[in-house]
């Protein structure tokens, strides 16, 4: 049955997913070409120096991409569910309602993780062909706040879209924006290293927020 749910989610978001993939790959290609040009017109040693001592992030263009992808996926997955209150169909399926809702966000989370991991690996492979491991190793923690923002916006999208009362939608959106702004404080290498893991875990907890919206939907708060 869950496999079947996954099938439905996939049909719903496959185009959005491919678009996300294309956007990400496009940006990474542009990052790569940019890097090539920098190395061509300057010297690699200057670039190293710039990265190590001036906090230059060669992939800074990628900064808001996870956020965008999280948003695209959230919209693609949840807007069709509330058009004509179609969520009723999913909640009427012979599965525990919480299970259905959790599965939906889990599925999105898994797809996000897959695409994020894929982009990370490409960036790592680009980086390791130009830079020593000490530089490449910082990519993970430096990216993680941006990825966390992507997950957060996705989870918030699920809550906000399924919620039917506009006042609550808007107030949750406001707090979502404020929270997500906290992931973009600086562009220093590994600046979030002290707290990003607990923050990431907290953001994973936000996956449960869909249940409140689903519960309110079930109770008829429309």
């Amino acid at each position: 049955m869950l496999l079947s749910l996954a099938y439905k989610e996939w049909i719903k978001i496959r185009w959005a997913y491919l678009v996300s993939l294309a956007i990400g790959l496009g940006i990474i290609l542009s990052i790569f070409l940019n890097l090539r040009l920098l190395v061509e017109f300057n010297s690699l040693k200057e670039l190293w120096n710039y990265i190590i001592f001036k906090n230059y992030l060669f992939y800074s263009q990628f900064r808001f991409i996870p956020l965008l992808i999280g948003l695209i996926l959230g919209i693609a997955q949840f807007v069709p569910e509330i058009q004509n209150l179609r969520l009723k169909l999913a909640l009427h399926l012979p599965i525990e309602e919480t299970k259905t809702l959790f599965f939906m966000v889990f599925y999105g989370f898994a797809l996000l993780t897959a695409i994020f991991l894929f982009f990370y690996l490409i960036l790592v492979s680009i980086s390791s062909s130009y830079f020593p491991p000490d530089i490449t190793n910082t990519i993970f923690i430096t990216l993680l706040p941006w990825y966390t923002a992507g997950y957060a916006v996705y989870f918030f999208a699920s809550v906000i879209i399924i919620e039917q009362i506009w006042v609550r939608r808007i107030s949750i959106s406001l707090f979502a924006v404020l929270l997500i702004s906290q992931f973009f404080h600086t562009m220093n290498h590994n600046a979030y290293i002290k707290i990003i893991i607990p923050i990431f875990l907290f953001v994973i907890l936000l996956s449960t927020l869909i249940i409140t919206s689903g519960y309110r939907f079930k109770r008829g708060l429309r």
Binding site: T98, T208, I210, I211, T212, Y215, K218
Partner: peptide, 8 residues
């Protein structure tokens, strides 16, 4: 569902 909803 209510229990989870309270949690969230």
């Amino acid at each position: 569902m209510k229990r989870f909803s309270t949690f969230s």
